[in-house]
Write a protein that binds this DNA or RNA. Structure first.
Lengths: 162, 162
DNA sequence: TTAATTTAGTTGCACATGCAACAACACAAA
DNA sequence: TTTGTGTTGTTGCATGTGCAACTAAATTAA
């Protein structure tokens, strides 16, 4: 079997591309572990609950009076219903959110953020904001930050079908 | 209080930089969830153990006869000792690794990969490789891949003190 | 209408993870 | 030597997460 020079060249380029992708993947894995861990640690040592709680509170805070159905939250927070159900349990135990029976669908309930929940989110934000500054804003140039956004967008678009 | 124009401009730039960092952070968080989930799912549906097992096997496979102390593995895999201890339990239960008493340090043991472990890693690789291709190599240009590597390196260097 | 199917959410069980306490050893100082 | 201190690794307990089975209500079809 005899490959044309162009075909050989192309094959080599593809192999090289894959090699580079593997390097990038390993670094991506590691940095995600490290950065998330840093942020979680900062929240915890300030006496706050974990990131997942903030995520949930933020989504609810964006829908002032209305609240959100559980499945709506699930779509935004990328959490499957089993875990979401129990995450809400925890927040409800702390009176940060409230389950209200849904009057248009007898199966479900509407989740609403409480006053306490609003305060909690507000209180967490400065710590969270500072953590983001430390892990993203400080180590990177503006150009790199923009580039990171682009790349993550490209990675996500491929796999999120809305 | 009167700010000089340059000072104002600088403050605005910094605020903008932070805003961009926050956007990038959210996307990074999401992509972590989505991409890892895709890779894990691919491994699982091919009947293989999770990524963390692969990581461990890979590190051990790189030290042919010698094996590694647990704390050495911990440094490379970014896993705290508690969890590492139990991860090794699981792999040992499957006869993929083996704990051998360390003859230079009575406290510890040396972890060695078994033949079965070597085979397992080899068997997992094609699936893993293909998954990386799908989540990184395919959606990105070579330029983007290089850029991703750079950025992740910059993020990590900041926080890993070796 | 009744019956079959889908969807929303919860629960039981198994497993994974973080934290703190612990046992066993190494190392250094007195 | 003994004593104290740090290191390596394990274990108990509480919490978090994935999977499958389940309830109950909505939806569709007959």
């Amino acid at each position: 079997m005899h490959l044309q020079p162009d075909a050989i060249k192309l094959a080599l380029m593809e192999k090289n591309r894959q090699k580079k992708a593997e390097t990038a993947w390993v670094l991506l894995l590691r940095s995600q572990q490290v950065l998330i861990d840093i942020v979680e640690t900062k929240l915890k040592s300030a006496g706050f609950p974990p990131l997942s709680w903030y995520d949930l509170l933020l989504e609810l805070d964006r829908e002032p009076g209305r609240g959100l159905r559980q499945y709506e939250i699930g779509e935004r927070v990328l959490l499957n219903k089993h875990n979401l159900s129990r995450l809400i349990d925890r927040l409800e135990n702390q009176a940060l959110v409230q389950r209200v029976a849904c009057n248009t669908d007898g199966r479900g309930n509407v989740i609403k953020i409480t006053e306490k929940g609003v305060h909690m989110r507000k209180a967490m934000w400065p710590i969270y904001e500072q953590a983001i500054q430390e892990v993203i804003a400080n180590p990177l140039t503006v150009k790199q930050i923009d580039s990171l956004t682009d790349i993550m967008g490209a990675l996500l678009n491929r796999h999120i079908d809305v």
